[in-house]
Design a protein around this nucleic acid. Structure first.
Lengths: 148, 148
DNA sequence: TATTGTTATACTCTATAACTATA
DNA sequence: TATAGTTATAGAGTATAACAATA
């Protein structure tokens, strides 16, 4: 019976709208850095250290062949490179170049600021509550995926 | 100084994780219905009624030419169709076919259930609080985009 | 045999530019 | 001139299948 009741949307609908919003921001920021969204994601992952091709394919939920193409393009642009892995002559290691690291950090910083514009207007208490609910969803989903 | 402090992530990071999570779910459900994510989105939009090609292009943030391709494929599959608009012989109206409506509803229902699995474990109070924070972010962003 | 990565092929999605037809 | 839509072309991202090299 409150005044806001009539405007209340389904939680799922809100979740979809929020996802589309963040997705739009992500695409816009990627564009600003002359990166595709997947390329930006790849660079950000590599900020955490070198990764194998198969490892990256699994993280991204794509086939190995897709990673080959992704890496061909990112390597042609001088942002990351493949190098041999000592101890396994089949495997390749993907590492950021200096330019790639710079691009990754610039993108990540910019993206952080863009998301801040979204969350800054929220009160500290609400924001903290929101964060904990989000963390709950994320962590529950992780366990449900690893357990079956 | 609480025990959870050490595990707390940045709100922005949580937002990205949540977005990736919902995105993964969306792709999985689309796949289950033999649709690409964009096709699923198109069908869902059309559940709200017929739309013009230019209108759809603007809603999706893509060029008109991209809509032409999208519609070519969805029409070839018999899920939607283009028809003339009385009063403007340049314009075309996009409508769901019976099969398209059925597919759209099935997808939407499935997606709703998948999102419920995400939000059901949250307490009613937390969920409501979460929903209102999300609505705040979405509505603030809408006004900031229309005002400049 | 299993795993790591590549190549070849095809499809979807997208942008740009040039075009037609109508307003 | 401006708007609605299409066609042509190109590139990114993806899947599948077949392959080579190594474990």
């Amino acid at each position: 019976m409150t005044e806001t009741w009539a405007d209340q949307l389904d939680v799922g609908t809100g979740l979809m709208q929020l996802t589309n919003l963040v997705q739009d921001i992500y695409t816009t920021v990627s564009d600003r850095h002359d990166l595709t969204p997947v390329q930006a994601r790849l660079l950000c992952v590599l900020l955490g250290g070198p990764r194998g091709m198969a490892e990256l394919a699994q993280m991204f939920g794509v086939e190995k062949a897709a990673l080959t193409g992704l890496m061909d393009r990112i390597e042609k642009r001088g942002l990351a490179e493949r190098s041999a892995v000592p101890g396994d002559r089949r495997a390749l290691q993907v590492t950021l170049t200096a330019a790639g690291r710079k691009a990754a950090i610039a993108f990540h910083t910019d993206m952080g600021e863009a998301l801040s514009a979204l969350t800054d207007p929220i009160s500290a208490a609400d924001r903290d509550h929101f964060r904990s609910v989000v963390e709950g969803m994320v962590s529950r989903c992780r366990t449900s995926r690893s357990n079956g």
